[in-house]
């Protein structure tokens, strides 16, 4: 019994310690951000390409299907009340406020987050980070900050693309396939959706970008420098990001309402 309590206690302390260290790491990244944006801008661009531009296929394909399935679900249920005209509202609200930012973040964690974590982890395992330190190059500034910023910049862009493609997917299914009136679909949406709803989505995507990028570089940078350790860091990136994103999603929604 006492052993169990002690286990719980040590786990708790360990969790708090990791959490605190992560926040310090985050502040450190923010501290290096302005200088990196100016002096190592090319590295940041390369990472935007890595994390963002290369994720675009998965984002567009997923967006199309998610929007399509929302249109399908909305239609089949609203049809019972003869309210097919409001399919546009349903799809737009779901995509802009919730599904767009959340699914983009989860896809981002799977596509870009894992790549970041394993890349940095592997650099650590092959002593590249240590070599940089030997050459008086700060590995956090040279390796971690550009990757972090690349993720932070890419995430809102990816979310915007995902949401837009999703709406087009919804249009495709609802209007072209199921025969909802095209005017009703868009006009109802425009009348109901406010700019504040779009802003909520943008705020979410910004926060999720910070969270997902931070988790990815943190896990990579603190990976145990072995093959197994890097693998575990990659897995943890996805798990931690998913939990953190859904947690923040709830918190932001509660704060905005």
């Amino acid at each position: 019994m006492i052993a169990l309590l002690r286990d719980v206690f040590t786990t708790l302390v360990l969790f708090l310690r990791t959490f605190g260290a992560m926040n310090i790491f985050f502040l450190q990244l923010l501290l290096y951000t302005p200088a990196t944006m100016v002096r190592r801008f090319r590295l940041v661009v390369a990472q935007v390409h890595n994390a963002g531009a290369l994720s675009i296929v998965i984002i567009i394909v997923s967006g199309l299907f998610v929007g399509g399935v929302l249109g399908l679900q909305a239609y089949s249920n609203l049809e019972r009340f003869n309210a097919e005209d409001t399919v546009g509202i349903f799809v737009a609200f779901a995509l802009v406020k919730e599904i767009g930012p959340v699914i983009s973040a989860l896809l981002f964690a799977g596509r870009a987050g894992t790549a970041l974590a394993s890349e940095i982890g592997l650099m650590k395992a092959t002593d590249q980070l240590a070599a940089m330190e030997m050459m008086a190059v700060n590995p956090v500034r040279r390796v971690v900050v550009p990757r972090f910023l690349g993720g932070v910049i890419s995430m809102p862009i990816l979310t915007a693309i995902f949401t837009t493609v999703g709406l087009l997917g919804g249009h495709l299914v609802a209007v072209e396939l199921l025969g909802v009136d095209v005017g009703a679909f868009w006009q109802q949406m425009q009348q109901t959706l406010e700019l504040s709803d779009v802003n909520e989505g943008i705020i979410k995507s910004l926060v999720f970008g910070l969270v997902a990028s931070l988790v990815a570089v943190w896990e990579g940078y603190n990976a145990i420098p072995t093959a197994e350790g890097v693998g575990r860091a990659t897995t943890r990136t996805v798990v931690v990001t998913a939990i953190a994103v859904l947690f923040f999603d709830f918190m932001i929604t509660a704060a905005v309402l």
Binding site: I157, T164, L195, D197
Partner: peptide, 10 residues
């Protein structure tokens, strides 16, 4: 996309 979202959906 952002332009589309802010002008076309609202």
């Amino acid at each position: 996309s952002l332009f589309f979202l802010t002008t076309q959906t609202t």
